[in-house]
């Protein structure tokens, strides 16, 4: 497989992807339309708007598949599109979904993403959202896991006007595991919502949610997380945490945990915090000559880190860490060799 560099000709001549991560295959979706045919072992079916990506039984895709989905000024109408990821049993894949807007039009995007993970399959999924302030984006995930499968999911919202992520996870097969981590950074008048519903439908499944938010200015974020444990889902372990760090008196973080447990032999916990910068830490750093802004940034980065730490591709972790830092410094993240704001 080769690494692609995109210079889409007609619609958006300005777009070129930055130097890709090592060992990465890039796929490009413009206004919901997949621009590629099948790639190597991976079958890609294009639909009118959206695509299906299928990994066959027993196939392990070693490369990271980076799917860059952009909204462009070529189509500024509201758009609905759907994509589907299917991993057959005993297969594995690593996906990086990047969501961007290439212009500051008032985009409205409704995206449905269904993910089906077969028995003993493993999916590493990272979603990175970096859109303009005029963008409204609803991303709805419907995820199902079969027996002994594993999903590691990181959803990182760097920037966007009004972003709503709905994540429905159905743990349908015994012994499966879902590790869900979210980081959202909101400033100005941005609104970011994450709604998570995890259903433990069968026994012996594990789920873990960690969502962290950093808010400034008049940003508003919402987290609502439901853990549902069905009557027969004994030996369930389900954990949820949502922590928010506010550095403005005008920002608002709403958080709403919800547990619905019908089985009796379960381990469940949830916790939510909304806090401000730690004054003692700030003073300690400043007393060493670290300026207020840098001290604040160090604290925010430290806070954010846990939500990224489990990304097991060090290069990707490093790059996301840099994007988070740039974002917290007040720069709309983009790299040196590219005019847009892609990961």
């Amino acid at each position: 497989m080769t690494n692609y560099i995109y210079t889409p000709d007609n619609n958006n001549p300005g777009f070129r992807c930055r130097v890709p991560l090592n060992n990465t295959v890039q796929l490009f979706v413009a206004d919901g339309i997949m621009q590629q045919e099948n790639i190597g072992e991976i079958s890609i079916q294009q639909q009118e708007r959206g695509y299906t990506l299928h990994v066959e039984k027993g196939k392990n895709i070693p490369e990271l598949l980076q799917i860059i989905s952009v909204r462009t000024s070529a189509n500024t109408r509201p758009l609905d599109f759907s994509s589907r990821f299917e991993l057959e049993s005993c297969s594995s894949a690593k996906l990086l979904l990047c969501s961007h807007t290439l212009s500051e039009d008032n985009f409205a995007t409704n995206e449905n993403i269904s993910v089906e993970i077969g028995e003993n399959a493993v999916l590493d999924l990272v979603m990175m959202q970096n859109e303009h302030n005029n963008s409204i984006h609803n991303a709805k995930f419907d995820i199902s896991l079969a027996a002994n499968s594993l999903l590691r999911f990181h959803i990182v919202t760097l920037h966007g006007g009004e972003i709503t992520n709905t994540i429905n996870v159905n743990l349908n097969g015994k012994g499966c595991e879902c590790d869900l981590n979210g980081l959202y950074l909101a400033n100005g008048k941005q609104h970011i919502s994450n709604k998570v519903n995890i259903s433990h439908n069968v026994p012996e499944c594990h789920s873990n949610q960690l969502f962290k938010g950093i808010l400034e200015d008049e940003a508003i974020t919402k987290f609502s997380g439901t853990i549902l444990v069905a009557k027969d889902a004994q030996k369930t372990e389900a954990y949820q945490a949502n922590n928010n760090l506010l550095s403005s008196d005008f920002a608002k973080a709403y958080t709403q945990p919800h547990l619905e447990i019908y089985a009796d032999d379960v381990k469940c916990s949830h916790g939510a915090t909304v806090g401000s910068l730690n004054e003692d830490e700030l003073f300690y750093m400043r007393s060493r000559g670290i300026s207020y802004n840098e001290a604040k940034l160090l604290q925010q980065q430290a806070f954010a880190y846990a939500a990224l730490a489990k990304i097991n591709n060090p290069e990707l972790l490093d790059r996301l860490g840099n994007l988070v830092e740039k974002r917290l410094r007040g720069e709309f993240s983009h790299c040196q060799n590219c005019s847009t704001h892609c990961c």
């Binding site: 003692d280 007393s287 430290a302 846990a306």
Partner: peptide
């Protein structure tokens, strides 16, 4: 400001040094 005092050459060794989880010593210094 506290940082200006540090830049000017003042240093305080704290009676109770503060713990900063998530910020490594090396990054801090």
């Amino acid at each position: 400001s506290p940082e200006e005092r540090s830049w000017a050459g003042l240093f305080l060794g704290f009676q109770y040094p503060i713990e900063i989880p998530g910020v490594t010593n090396v990054n801090f210094m």
